[in-house]
């Protein structure tokens, strides 16, 4: 019976509707730059960070419990890697008209409460996240600078234990950035984790 079920599951592996992963960046693609409003009122672009070697770009928000569960780990990532050339850039992809608690004023409050030392940008008009192919919060893209281009090197989750920070075994983003800093390719380039759908009207 088990064999039948296994064969059955194999048979249907390729058939489900592929709405999710069809668009957006794949590893090795050139990521677009943007100019988005930060919680401090300034516009921020990747090009502003002349000394950066790359970026830990994280689509996240105020309202998703999975995002909130990762806030301290996002702060720690920025603290550890900004000085090494990989600052965190957080972008809130949610349309504030579609969900309470994710407008710029709310983002300012949260950034202040938690002491975010990194840009927390609003994806005004929801123009940026679809280009990256972000589908949820949190959703991480590690970019590496090559000349004027930012190359996508890692897509996925921060680590392997969203709901229990004390059970983390694999720190995917750290491993990816450490590899890039050492001049190597990350051994794990894509991972998945549960998150909240991006809220649009």
């Amino acid at each position: 019976m088990k064999i039948i079920l296994f064969a059955y599951s194999l048979l249907f592996l390729s058939t489900p509707t592929d709405l999710v992963n069809g668009d957006g960046y794949k590893i090795g693609d050139v990521a677009t730059d943007f100019s988005l409003l930060n919680v401090d009122g300034e516009m921020v672009s990747l090009a502003d960070f002349e000394d950066a070697k790359g970026f830990i770009l994280i689509f996240t928000c105020n309202t998703c419990p999975y995002s909130v569960a990762y806030e301290d780990r996002i702060i720690a990532l920025d603290k550890a890697y900004k000085s090494k050339g990989y600052p965190v850039i957080a972008i809130n992809p949610n349309d504030p008209a579609a969900i309470d608690g994710d407008d710029l004023a709310d983002m300012k409050v949260r950034a202040t409460e938690k002491g975010f030392n990194f840009p927390y940008l609003q994806d005004v008009g929801q123009q940026v996240y679809p280009q990256y192919g972000a589908t949820k919060t949190p959703h991480v893209f590690v970019l590496q600078k090559e000349g004027n281009n930012n190359i996508v090197r890692y897509i996925g989750s921060i680590d392997d234990s969203s709901r229990k920070p004390n059970k983390v075994k694999k720190r995917y983003v750290e491993q990816a950035v450490d590899a890039l800093l050492a001049g190597k390719s990350p051994s794990t380039t894509t991972t998945k984790a549960i998150g909240c759908s991006i809220k649009t009207l």
């Binding site: 249907f12 509707t17 999710v20 589908t135 949820k136 959703h139 989750s157 234990s161 991006i198």
Partner: peptide
């Protein structure tokens, strides 16, 4: 905890966002 394993086991097309539904 092993979301990176079971999300793909449930569907390779699932990115992990909620809500999501399997019909079979």
């Amino acid at each position: 905890e092993n979301e990176n394993y079971w999300i793909n086991e449930i569907s390779t097309t699932w990115s992990g966002a909620l809500p999501a539904t399997l019909i079979y």
